[in-house]
């Protein structure tokens, strides 16, 4: 394991009652890189995210984060170590105003540790974070009930929740899905800024065009197995990948 490697997955597998959702996937993630994970629907991308973040225990294999074995660790401990994640299905705390949604994340013990035992003014921190992901400061959206926010804002909120944790790695599960082109375009700079701050990102995506602009490297999953790995342009030339994607996103 080189010192640049921050996360390593070795032979990760997960069976759901005979179905191999993820089957012997290994990869390593270098510090401060953006790794794209692509593949057709049902190829095990979300399960892979769940395996890394502890929401699903692997049937076989290991996850090593920063030289520490985190295989099968409880999700909150993984998050506490510094791997934040977003969910594909956005489910905010519906009853709360948008910024109060972040207050929950800002209560995290990790943050208290990082800031030396003090929490600070959570309301203000939450509003700052929301501004960073593209909420208009002092506008109605920040204090609006999360239940009635438009989808685009919910996705931003999801990203802000990840950032609130000040993580080392952010695993983004289909952050761009369901967003318009303009909305994606406005989120790309936010992500680029995260990379500039030194964060490491794992992006599970269907929007290949946008992903390829950000990602340094991609891995391709099909039927739970890794079928290709490399820089985006190379990977898409791979005949196996083209086969897996035939007629779908490859033509976009």
């Amino acid at each position: 394991m080189s010192e640049k490697t921050i996360l390593q997955a070795q032979d990760l597998s997960k069976n759901f009652g005979g179905v191999k959702a993820v089957d012997g996937v290994s990869f390593s993630l270098r510090r401060n890189e953006v790794l794209g994970v692509i593949g057709p629907n049902g190829s095990g991308k979300t399960t892979l995210a769940n395996l890394i973040t502890g929401f699903v225990k692997p049937s076989r294999g290991k996850v090593i984060f920063d030289g520490k074995n985190i295989t099968g660790m409880a999700p909150y401990k993984v998050a506490d170590l510094g791997i934040a994640r977003s969910f594909q299905m956005v489910k905010p705390f519906y009853q709360l105003p948008a910024f109060k949604n972040l207050n929950v994340a800002l209560l995290s013990p990790r943050l208290r540790r990082l800031s030396g035992g003090r929490f600070g003014d959570r309301d203000a921190m939450a509003k700052d974070l929301l501004e960073e992901v593209g909420f208009e400061r002092d506008s109605w959206v920040i204090t609006h009930q999360a239940a009635s926010l438009p989808h685009g804002y919910l996705k931003r909120l999801e990203l802000a929740k990840c950032m609130a944790l000040q993580p080392e790695i952010i695993v983004l599960d289909e952050l761009f899905s369901g967003l318009s082109l303009a909305e994606v375009a406005s989120m790309v700079p936010v992500i680029e800024k995260l990379v500039a701050q030194g964060k490491t990102l794992v992006m599970i995506e269907h929007r290949l065009k946008e992903l390829f602009r950000i990602a340094d490297r991609v891995i391709v999953l099909n039927f739970g197995q890794k079928i290709a790995e490399g820089v985006p342009a190379e990977v898409m030339e791979d005949p196996q990948v083209r086969g897996a994607y035939l007629g779908s996103e490859a033509e976009e």
Binding site: F55, A74, Y76, A79, A84, F87, K91, V104, K161, L165
Partner: peptide
Amino acid sequence: NDNDRAVMSAGMNI
């Protein structure tokens, strides 16, 4: 109550 997974992924032992 709303979404325990989100609370967990904020690093808190629910």
